[in-house]
Design a protein around this nucleic acid. Sequence first.
DNA 1: TTAGTTAATTGACAAGTTGTTGATTTATCA
DNA 2: TGATAAATCAACAACTTGTCAATTAACTAA
Lengths: 200, 200
Amino acid sequence: MEKVDRRVRRTRALLGQALRDLILTKPYETITIQDITNQADLNRATFYLHYASKEELLMDSLKQQFDALVEQLEVEKNGRPMWENPVTLRLIFEYVAANGDLFKVLLGPQGQGHVMYRVINYIAQVDEEELESAFGQDALPIPNAILARHFAGALFALISWWLEQDMPYSPAYMAETIQQLCMAGFIPVLAEVGSGARAN
Amino acid sequence: MEKVDRRVRRTRALLGQALRDLILTKPYETITIQDITNQADLNRATFYLHYASKEELLMDSLKQQFDALVEQLEVEKNGRPMWENPVTLRLIFEYVAANGDLFKVLLGPQGQGHVMYRVINYIAQVDEEELESAFGQDALPIPNAILARHFAGALFALISWWLEQDMPYSPAYMAETIQQLCMAGFIPVLAEVGSGARAN
DNA sequence: TTAGTTAATTGACAAGTTGTTGATTTATCA
DNA sequence: TGATAAATCAACAACTTGTCAATTAACTAA
């Protein structure tokens, strides 16, 4: 079925790696097809045999990484939905950390909109499916789509912030915190004012 | 103080409007400086007298819109922090709706990363300041920065989703829902299973 | 109102990117 | 091994970019 010419596999892998390397080097928008093929040591015309644009290449390259993660998560989560499973969340943060250099650029201030959007959308989609299989289609007082988006947005923003700050907390802490905030909200947190300064 | 030559104001306004118009017409990346100056009916060299890039122009143009909103919010919120003030949140959604065409593009699948990042960051920053003035610096069991980011991410994701779906709910509903989810979390929602299908 | 200042226009420049072409060489698969 | 498909190469026109000096037009302040 999935028989692909070895040369094609090789070329695409080289192009993908070249783009990833370049992203760590210079702003994404300034990277040209020339740059990519130079870095990959391939002819420029070869690029167009496989992709129509940088974005297409980037998405193809990221998809493979994603698929590997999703496969791992499927095994670990064992039917428990993401929002109440700290193990799944922790694995996500560990995965992000493992590819921190790249994600920090792609999701940061100079990040790519289509990547950000897809990440949020992907998380939301998975989450929405989990909600549907757990509660049915919109049996809850708030639409599944909204719940899923809320969760995905919060997760995305924390990942982005965590990378920007160079990961000041452990993946486990981030996972627990997100779970707590999504499940129980701010109220329990705000109620429990610590030893620091009090409001005036 | 702020005396700016009338020609400069006029030119910058024309350039900004031209870019906004073009964004509704064709993909952002394909818009050239030529396109912008053509649309604005200005000479191409004039652009470089004011901005170094499309991004700089876009940010300058958006900043003015933002400032107008922030000013309005300051008046309305009356000291009450964003996360527990449905009026502020409703105004935000109404503001988004008023500029729906533009924001739908900028925050959507083909959106611009730097715009998305700035929006999230801006909301988070305002929220973090509110948390600090209400509870002090990190007196809560969870760092203010994380709480603020969580809220900003959820708000951003819901706005983006709401635009993408062509605003299927009222601004008031969106505001109430976000507030409820952020303050009380999923637990009360999941507990209250409606009349629909039940999990198997 | 006017004189001096500053912005905008114009045409032109070299340098670089883009996407595609046809002919050729090279690697792979069966 | 021989047929097939991929990669290379050089070259193409079309376009964008940033900058320039010289000129014209608009504005501000006295």
